[in-house]
Design a protein around this nucleic acid. Structure first.
Lengths: 121, 121
DNA sequence: CCTATATTCAACCCTATGGTTGAATTAAAC
DNA sequence: GTTTAATTCAACCATAGGGTTGAATATAGG
């Protein structure tokens, strides 16, 4: 999996922070879609949809292939995998694996100022 | 796990779309931190840091407890779990589980216009 | 009480974002 | 070759975002 650096995570999470774009990704999970097809469900102009698609493309979430006068988009799961992986770091906080949690906290928190003692009990 | 609705996913992903805020979350993975402690690593004003923290709080990613004159923040993993879960929908696209992928595509894509034939080979 | 500390509030600035409309581009269709 | 269709481009508008500074708030400590 490709580890995204900070600026790339910025653009990926930013792209995901919009319901229209998330909906477009979901549509693309069903296979290739043209710009027109992606725009169709929304009550916005094609130009606006085009900007959303460009944001997704910019984040690397989709790839575009120009076939004649239509632009065909397809999902590129790589950045989604990276975002998923980034979030996985915090997985121990919502699973019951408190043993792992504590170990990691000890390790990562070592060498810090007064170091608060509470540590999520 | 709490399923976040669209507006909540908006705020969560938006909050994650900033390196400063992601860094703050990472710090909070090490235990409780005050506003001052969270702000310290960054070359920004305390007011700016306060806004970032408010964005995280607004997204439900952190909780704040006011102890005297200091505000102590701690991670709330719930929304991270929801974001992670949201991304998991796409997991089949980056894992090798093409069998599952194809089944799901067939199911979800049923009843759609010309239905492109390519379907990510 | 007075002072120092921790944090927010308010006003402001600049840039980015998401939307619009109308013109431009490109290719398919006839 | 003219028309129609699929997209983008450019200019514009309003609002949100992230930053600043200076004043306000509230509490801890002498």
């Amino acid at each position: 999996m490709v580890e995204l650096n900070a600026p790339q995570l910025d653009t990926v999470f930013h792209a995901l922070g919009d319901a229209t774009r998330r909906h477009m990704l979901h549509a693309l999970a069903g296979g290739e879609r043209t710009v027109g097809q992606l725009a169709e469900p929304f009550a916005i102009s094609l130009a606006a949809a085009s900007k959303h698609i460009k944001a997704l493309e910019n984040a690397g979430l989709i790839r575009r292939e120009i076939r004649g006068r239509t632009h065909v988009c397809r999902l590129d799961p790589g950045p989604l995998a990276s975002a998923h992986h980034w979030l996985s770091f915090y997985e121990r906080f919502w699973t019951g694996r408190l043993d792992v949690l504590e170990m990691l906290l000890r390790a990562e928190d070592a060498g810090r100022s007064p170091t608060p003692e509470g540590e999520e009990q």
